[in-house]
């Protein structure tokens, strides 16, 4: 290939599946490679992964709508993924045209697509960064341009906490963000749990070992501790479909199959 050498992406591994692209596939998107699709199909055999994704994405929307109701107009979305249906800025700007959103992800495909999507959107931007570096993110000019840390912020960590291993101390990480936020800020978070289907989840851990984003599911207790220093709003930390469902019947008779706990909390 005559000119390809300069185009071969650095730091992008198309062989090794990434969580962002797997999630995109599970939601019906087209921005993924064969390896991502294969991994997703393996997951589907172990866990109701399509339902998990759909229910998580729907939680994200309800959480953002709730935060808007609570008067939040600026959002920092950590691990935002490939823009697909129901992106945070679309939800927020529909409710409040002055709302501002900064997306953060470390996956190049996710960032490239976000950049394209946001080109014409002055109130939203995307930053390529590792969420384990809160100081760098919070100081980044792209973030500072749109977000005022002296006012309440909606911090979103939806469907990402399981990517942070215990060794990187997710509890301390959330605390570092928390300390930088103004009172009245909210945290919306969802994460994989062992509690419902330990065997299926163990299989998923194994499957994700062969990806760029190994996962670390946690118990209810462990995920609850991520909210230390925040005050959970009703109904607390629950399976995603149970978090303020739009319709009672949406919950179904097996909310636990979502395999993710979700909660929204306020910094006092």
């Amino acid at each position: 290939m005559t000119e390809s050498s300069s185009w071969v992406p650095e730091g992008v591994n198309t062989e090794l599946p990434s969580a962002a692209r797997v999630y995109d596939y599970l939601l019906g998107g087209g921005h993924n490679f064969p390896g991502d699709r294969a991994l997703a199909e393996e997951l589907v055999r172990l866990l109701p992964a399509r339902d998990m994704s759909r229910l998580n994405r729907a939680f994200l929307r309800r959480a953002v709508l709730h935060l808007l109701d609570a008067g939040i107009t600026q959002f920092l979305d950590l691990g935002s993924g490939i823009p697909t249906v129901g992106n945070v800025h679309e939800i927020a700007l529909a409710a409040d045209p002055t709302a501002r959103v900064v997306y953060v992800d470390y996956e190049p495909v996710a960032v490239a697509h976000s950049e394209m999507l946001l080109r014409e959107v002055p109130n939203a931007d995307v930053l390529r960064a590792d969420m384990r570096e809160p100081e760098k993110i919070l100081r980044a000019p792209r973030v500072r341009e749109l977000i005022d840390l002296s006012a309440p912020l909606g911090l979103l960590m939806v469907g990402v906490a399981q990517f942070i291993p215990d060794d990187d101390d997710p509890w301390a990480l959330v605390a570092r963000y928390r300390d930088a936020l103004a009172p009245g800020s909210h945290l919306a978070l969802s994460a994989f749990t062992w509690d419902n289907a330990p065997e299926g989840m163990a299989g998923a851990v194994e499957v994700f070992r062969h990806s760029q984003d190994p996962i670390f599911p946690r118990t209810h207790q462990e995920i609850l501790r991520l909210f230390d220093g925040f005050e959970l709003v009703e109904p607390g930390l629950v399976y995603t479909p149970l978090w303020r469902p739009e319709r009672a019947e949406d919950v179904g008779d097996n909310a636990a199959r979502s395999n993710l706990y979700a909660g929204v909390a306020r910094k006092t």
């Binding site: 300069s6 992406p9 190049p108 490239a112």
Partner: peptide, 10 residues
């Protein structure tokens, strides 16, 4: 260019 290649192959 990395991104370009990315989109191209994706």
């Amino acid at each position: 260019e990395a991104r370009f290649g990315e989109v191209f192959t994706t």
